[in-house]
């Protein structure tokens, strides 16, 4: 069953803030993890691991490279 996207977005923003210290207001769905939020690959893997835990989903390593924006990650998690 698909999850509520706004709930997923809210939870994901919390994880990103925790990991990076970024201002929550700066993390919007259109932002790119690497280009806009300056999140490196290790931090991205941390966020993915914490998101898997929190939303009880599996995000295969091969899929992570496709999650370039916050919105794409929210979609993946909501539909996983």
């Amino acid at each position: 069953m698909a999850k509520d996207k706004s709930e997923v977005l809210e939870g994901l923003i919390e994880i990103i803030v925790d990991e990076t210290g970024l201002d929550a207001a700066a993390i919007t769905p259109d932002k790119s993890f690497s280009d806009d939020l300056d999140i490196d690959s290790l931090s991205m893997m941390t966020i993915v691991t914490l998101a898997e835990d929190r939303f009880e989903v599996e995000i295969p390593d091969d899929s992570v490279k496709d999650l370039s924006t916050v919105a794409s990650a929210v979609d993946f998690i909501a539909n996983a």
């Binding site: 290790l42 893997m45 941390t46 691991t49 914490l50 898997e52 835990d53 599996e58």
Partner: peptide, 11 residues
Amino acid sequence: RDRGARRLLPL
């Protein structure tokens, strides 16, 4: 041990 290697944090 409890939850598997997948749950390890990258750092």
